[in-house]
Nucleic acid binder design. Structure first.
Lengths: 241, 241
DNA sequence: CGTGCCAGGTGCCAT
DNA sequence: ATGGCACTTGGCACG
């Protein structure tokens, strides 16, 4: 039971509202192009003066306001948001509300250039590779990539400071904590590793040394210094060649 | 010198390519809706099987592929990417390339439901409030919000571990490091504060204690424990009331 | 340019 | 629901 795609060029406000209302009740995706102002209030607050933008409303409640620049929408509303479309001051107004967190987005159109709807059918999932999870699998497959004789014992091993990416032992039987990063690592990655090493050291009463190794394609200078200060190691590995 | 907005419903491949090519040379924004497959290769690699999606190309080179769900595009290309539109296997193919980092996105359409272009005029900037910068201004305005007698001395004070949000002194003349977060803070915020306190302690040789205070609306349990372990403080403050 | 860090980050999965 | 963290994170400001 799919509805036909529709498109309107320079529609009247009434026609645009009709289109949007139909699309909302039919769980269609809507795109609107036109001159609008935007007000947001929620986790933060924002206002955006008049300009030509692309507005997208998805059937899952997502709303996006895109300007002519940049990857990110200038304003948006998360999935699960409601949408109300009405006439105000002879213009189309979209009002989207979300609860928990409480957020409200109001888009006031002066002009609508295009309005279009369609019924998306998208059964396929994205297959992504080159992630941290792939790097983890590589290491579990060939532990010697980390160092000769390294033996993984667990992944996601829990500590009081969080879960260790890979926990294992070296040839001398010492505990080894690996923190993995799919790309060049900075100070935050070193701190993360440091937290896990501290926590594990505390858990295994003091004396037995716990080694920590950051595994990433590379590290920044600052991160390198931090590693040295904390007595932590580094191994260069990339998720895919 | 603005071009008119155009829209096509169920265009032929040739018509769609004509529209896109015109839009590319006129620096217009393009939206395409239709059934497509997507392949990405760059910092990572991905494939996406056939489905109905919304594709947006912006004049700054940004490309977005949106499915029917979620705030984020399923695939994209950053600003500054090229775009080539051609016919292949009797379908429209968009090929976008980016250099540094090297990334390539290929979108193969089976069907095109809508194609539309317009010339965006968007002179206004977003005015956002409730940011960390607002929280900083509040504290500089009323330092006693942190604690009675607190005196800010500098913002963005440089240390070997990075820049301190607010550096100051307490009533006893002790150095105080503030790390600000606009929302509930987790372990990473504590580690960040800890890095700055360590660095500053090192710089001011040793004995003089350096205090560290995390300023945020709230902290998680784990973060609270970490603060205690490290002898760091916490003050509850929100960027806007 | 690279480094570091904020973001209305988002999304995923765990408890 | 909250927490902890990865993400093709994106974006900005600064050296």
């Amino acid at each position: 039971m799919t509805d036909s795609p529709r498109t309107l060029l320079q529609p009247t406000a009434a026609a645009a509202i009709g289109l949007v209302d139909d699309a909302l009740s039919a769980d269609q995706l809507v795109t609107l192009v036109g001159r609008c102002r935007v007000v947001y209030e929620g986790r933060a607050t924002s206002t955006l003066g008049p300009g030509d933008r692309l507005v997208v409303r998805k059937p899952d409640g997502t709303m996006l306001v895109h300007t002519d620049e940049g990857h990110q929408p200038v304003n948006w509303q998360p999935p699960g948001s409601s949408c109300d479309c009405r006439l105000a001051d002879s213009g189309v107004v979209l009002e989207s509300k979300h609860e928990n967190p409480s957020e409200e987005l109001i888009i006031r159109f002066e002009t609508i250039t295009h309005a279009a709807t369609f019924d998306p059918n998208d059964p396929n999932e994205l297959a992504l590779s080159g992630t941290e999870s792939d790097l983890r699998d590589q290491i579990l497959e060939s532990p010697s990539l980390v160092e000769p004789g390294f033996e993984p014992r667990a992944t996601e091993r829990k500590t009081s400071a969080g879960a260790i990416d890979i926990y294992g032992e070296d040839t001398d039987g010492r505990a080894v904590v690996l923190e993995l990063k799919r790309r060049r690592a900075g100070p935050d990655a070193v701190s993360q590793l440091n937290r896990y090493v501290d926590a594990l050291t505390r858990e295994r009463h003091a004396d037995a040394t716990v080694r920590g190794i950051l595994v990433a394609p590379s590290v920044t200078d600052r991160a390198h210094r931090l590693l040295a200060e904390r007595g932590l190691g580094f191994v260069s590995l990339s998720p895919t060649e």
